[in-house]
């Protein structure tokens, strides 16, 4: 057993757990004359948590990730509904396979394409100009960042929602219809509660992915204002202040743990009550 059991856990321990532990330890280190020195100081934590730029970046990143999870969930739902209930199995299988494609298509390149779509001379402005609209400028704005987050998260949200809806028992829906429940009410009172776990999971992934994303806020948002991931990258690549970057990283991890715990409670909590 040891032959099989030890290598994977050893690898993930040595190159995942230890580096993360090292990251946490480093938040207590100090930088003395440009050199990292092991230490037990709270100075980095105090500095970052009190810094105005960190607080505004934290609130901004959190808000945008939350907004993305909301927009992605609401906009994907009608499409997931169509995929799960309104299409032929063949078409559905094909579309599900297609939705896997974006995961293996360079995300930076997709952001580059999106950047060009929304540029002043881009396709979007060329399309809406004859309608007397525009020009719209979303590049280098928070809207641009959200558009990028949606490029990142929508395929996954749509896939997870579709799977969740496909698992809803058809009899349940038909029963609701037979009992005179309208389509819209069936969705709200039968389909959404039954598929809750999958729907919450999809929203959680959207939040987690956007919260940590670096490419969209940089290239579509113009890091204006910066998000937490941009703060980390800046501190590491230019400022070289790794302990402070680590503090930002650890606050991100703690935030994600809290969010995921809350979402799991939302997904699985109160099930019996809901059924009764």
């Amino acid at each position: 057993m040891a032959f099989w059991a030890i290598p994977p856990i050893l690898w993930q321990f040595a190159f995942f757990v230890v580096p993360l532990g090292f990251l946490v330890a480093m938040t207590f280190w100090s930088v003395r004359s440009f050199r990292l020195t092991p230490d037990m100081t709270l100075a980095n934590w105090m500095f970052i948590l009190k810094a105005g730029f960190f607080r505004s970046a934290y609130i901004y990143t959190f808000k945008l990730a939350l907004l993305t999870a909301l927009i992605a969930s609401l906009s994907a739902f009608p499409a997931a509904y169509t995929l799960a209930f309104r299409l032929q199995p063949r078409t559905r299988r094909f579309l599900i396979f297609m939705l896997v494609v974006p995961f293996f298509t360079s995300y930076p390149v997709r952001i580059y394409s999106t950047q060009i779509f929304f540029s002043p001379e881009g396709i979007i402005n060329a399309m809406i100009a004859p309608l007397g609209l525009g020009p719209v400028s979303v590049l280098d704005t928070p809207t641009g960042t959200v558009v990028g987050y949606l490029v990142l998260t929508l395929p996954l949200v749509l896939l997870l929602q579709t799977f969740a809806l496909m698992n809803t028992p058809r009899d349940l829906i038909e029963a609701a219809h037979n009992l005179g429940c309208g389509r819209f009410r069936t969705i709200l009172t039968v389909i959404v509660p039954t598929a809750r776990v999958g729907l919450v999971l999809a929203a959680t992934f959207a939040f987690v992915l956007s919260f940590g994303d670096y490419v969209a806020p940089l290239y579509l948002g113009g890091s204006n204002p910066p998000t937490l991931s941009i703060l980390i990258a800046d501190q590491v690549k230019s400022g070289n202040n790794w302990p402070r970057a680590s503090v930002v990283a650890v606050t991100m991890i703690l935030t994600l743990i809290v969010v995921m715990t809350a979402m799991l409670a939302l997904a699985y909590g109160g099930r019996k009550k809901g059924r009764g």
Partner: peptide, 14 residues
Amino acid sequence: AVPVVILGIAMLTF
């Protein structure tokens, strides 16, 4: 489940 930006900095320092 961990953002790659965090994995990145953890890997780099370690």
